[in-house]
Design a binder for these strands. Sequence first.
DNA 1: CACACGTGGAG
DNA 2: TCTCCAAGTGT
Length: 355
Amino acid sequence: MTLAAAPSALIAWYDRHARPLPWRVSPEDRALGVVPDPYHVWLSEVMLQQTTVAAVKSYYSAFVERWPRVEDLAAAGEEDVMKAWAGLGYYSRARNLKKCAETVARDHGGRFPQTEEGLKALPGIGPYTAAAIAAIAFDRPAAVVDGNIERVITRLEAIETPLPDAKPQIRDHVAELMPPDRPGDFAQAMMDLGATICTPRKPACALCPWMDECAGRRKGIAETLPHKAAKAQKPTRRGMAFVAVREDGAVLLRRRPPRGLLGGMSEPPTSEWAADAVTDRPLDAPLALKWRKSPAPVRHTFTHFHLEMTVWRADAPAGTPPPHGHWWSPSHEISGEALPTVMKKAVAAGLGKTV
DNA sequence: CACACGTGGAG
DNA sequence: TCTCCAAGTGT
């Protein structure tokens, strides 16, 4: 088989091995004329940005059930969207998701633009997502390039140029390989191939529909590709969290600033986080109470730093007014708050139990 | 362009 | 314990 025949071999593989995914129209259904819902494609693609399929599934189902159409999401309360996104990470995605839904509902009559250019103009939609929606939802011949496809192509073509310098080259190869009749299935096939066969470690080359034409395999360097620049070491920051618990079990919370780390999400009051922070005294506690230090600090790793957070807990008398900008979250509502994982850990440590 | 931006699972 | 990394985007 020549490289020219590669696309059809991949499509044939996909027709047999496509993973059933909640947001996906199977090749069989596709052949029967079922078309994808652009809202579903968009929602899943945004959720899947830097996030695993396993992590996305339950969030995707919950969003579609609660907000079945883009207009529903546009009309939703921002706070409800943040609560529903809590735990999925990269919270600017949730803020942009809401903005994007509002724009589509208000300026586009509830219909997503069909071109890459039109899609890319929307909040939270970059080059990858624009191409993915154009190809998958609208059958546009867009060159979709994600992390899977970068890996597949650098191996197929034995590209040793490190990322991100190799991106333009990769994109050219994808555009050349793409079959004009099924761009959406081609993109999904490439991603499935990368996720299940052409994996980062121990690729299952024997099962690959492109085994014979893979230059990386031929040269014995497939598993070493793609080359990437080494990552910087993560520094450690320290800080404190203050878990005030009222007699009825309510916990004091506040909202984080709208942008930046965990922007727009909720938290128990916290101190600043810094490399040289003092954490052995309850400095800047939100209420004048008797604070007790939790036995073990909460450790959490973000994308670019480690956090070691000392948790202080205090009992607050009934009727204690919340400081400005804070509120008492009733015990039965805490699990539904827009608490990012690190803050769920902090509250749990303060309460001495799971949240 | 380089860096900020979460989380959980795998090896 | 620790590194890598998963359907990237915004600034």
